[in-house]
Design a protein around this nucleic acid. Sequence first.
DNA 1: CGCACCACAATTTTT
DNA 2: TTGTGGTGCG
Length: 701
Amino acid sequence: MAETLNARFASARRNAILSEFGNLNADQLEAVAATQGPLLLLAGAGSGKTTVVINRIANILKYGRATDSSDVPADITDEDADALEYLALHPDPEWRKQRAPLMELEPAKPWQVLAITFTNKAANELKERLARMLGADVALDVWAATFHSMCVRILRRDVDAGGVWTRSFTIYDTADCQSLIKRIVKDLELDEKSFAPRQVMSAISRAKDEGTSPEDYADSASVAKDLRRRDIGRVYLEYSRRMRSANAMDFDDLIMQTVRMFTQFPHILQKWQHQFRYVMVDEYQDTSKLQFRLVSLLSGGHGNICVVGDEDQSIYRFRGATIENILGFDKQFKHTRVIRLEQNYRSTETILNAANAVVSENSDRLGKKLWTENGAGEPLSLHIALDERGEADYIALQMMKQQRAGLAFRDLAVLYRTNAQSLQLELAMKRSAIPYRVYGGTRFFDRAEVKDVVSYLAVTANPDDDVRLLRIINNPPRGLGAKAIETLVEIARAESLPIYEVLRNVLAYPELSRSAAKLASFTEIIEGFREKASTLRPDLLYDEILRGSGYIDMLDAKPSLENETRKENVLELKTSILDYVARNPDEPSLSAYLDEIALYTDMDKSDGSDDCVQLMTIHSAKGLEFPVVFVCGAEDGIFPGQRAIGEPEEMSEERRLCYVAFTRAKRKLYVTAAKQRMLYGKTMNNPPSRFLDSILGRQRE
DNA sequence: CGCACCACAATTTTT
DNA sequence: TTGTGGTGCG
């Protein structure tokens, strides 16, 4: 008797709760309800994935595990079950509120929910949507973050346990790391041509991803008698040393050191495992091995791990992402439930068929077929122009047509494989007077002048930051010659000290006597900033730095158009500091601001407000949608790229990239190519993309 | 120390 | 073709 009441109650409870999440299809509801244990959510493009993620979190926060458990309170009655059954059918808010306690089963606190996203932008959107649903106070306490920002938060609390880094460690961006590597390659007297910073860095990055230490790396090289690997191992070792000495971490370190800390100190791991009752990872198809390790560690306490992704949209292999994570999830986590979201709400049948046709040639898939109720819609337009200029003009012409037909410019997007293709498109937009915006390209924080002034801030926060210190020690010029700086660096190396330590005791080194006065005056400037940093608000400190360093004076000294732009950028940084201060009025700190800009390249003013057509690479279009999409450069050699042809793995990724490109379109898709194209000063005659054959159902021999 | 000139390379990119 | 980075000269 009690048995049936309990079952009736649990089932009614589930229905009552789910009735609150209207507008979801059966699969989506299933996903929202599945709160416990490992869950693999295969969400095709345009399948309402984000909505499901938001609602699932809301369910966890409001009702805990109630929709996924047969546990019921001991003292329930038939009336209670009746009430819930009534609620499932009659969405009366008053009633619902009254009966809420009946529906709850250990609701989670906001800070017990961890939602890892691919970008900061996505994390913010998640928080905003949660705030609208549940209130800002709840949303703010949910851990919605990228892998990197989550790790920073964790490390800032606990990293000092290891005794290597302090909690005020500095984050190096890619350019900082490359300049360090370049210096090391020089110092080790390796050939700078065959050890390009870029390549060395990606080798080191791969080693870190595989959990290989510098020592192991060098060992494996000597076993294999691989000379190049041995040398890279030497660079890797020295790189790690100097990063530690500078109290700095690169992006990979943020994750690797978190994993290391967790393995080394089980009590720290347990603390975090305990905190995160629910762990969610979005864009799981683009996670790396190291990230997988981190996810398994973090979710190892409660075992509630939900990953969301689409193996057909895995497009970041070049960056260490491994599609194996999503393909093997159900083997890594026992008793995984798999839910597929295959109904597409975004595109027409025509568009989906084209996308499916291309990606269905891949073998590394879990299998999934998108379908839609949207109907066939407009036919695809394929256009092969004479050259890239003709292609761009065709696109501009079609854009004008679409606009006359009633679409806004912002509804139109051009997607290309490589940034180099944007130039001709821009020119065509200009010729046709179409307002446009190019996404990507050089970012604000990558500009030299911005890096300079940020370096002043960074050195003020952490004077052991050698890379940034070297960037500014003679910038603006202070009469320090290359040899003086070289001597300084050598002393620091010989003594295994940060450069700044040598500077502080400059008089103790006779080799530096000739430049001692100049070095001391630099040290004095920095000391002055450091003193002020403890009392001054970051924006005021910044004013002080611009003046005290002589940077603004330097720009003013030689008025030119270029220097005007630089000054604008330097002042724009102040805007960003002020913005940070406004968002953190209680305790604005310099180091927290530096964290933010290290992890936030996305200061991009995303004005959806101005009416421009949008030009971007396919990669940066991931997650976006547009009524009309132009995919250009559909030629073998461009898309798929030359490097991918003949490489099955790479070809798979290019097909997925094509799938991503096509599924951005809601109503109409254009695919264009050029018979002849100038690239890097060379004219090439590329055949039309093999992807066109897939779309048209043709075989190529 | 700054500027001019030449060589050279060059998917995709967020953190 | 374009941009960047290194070298050499004034």
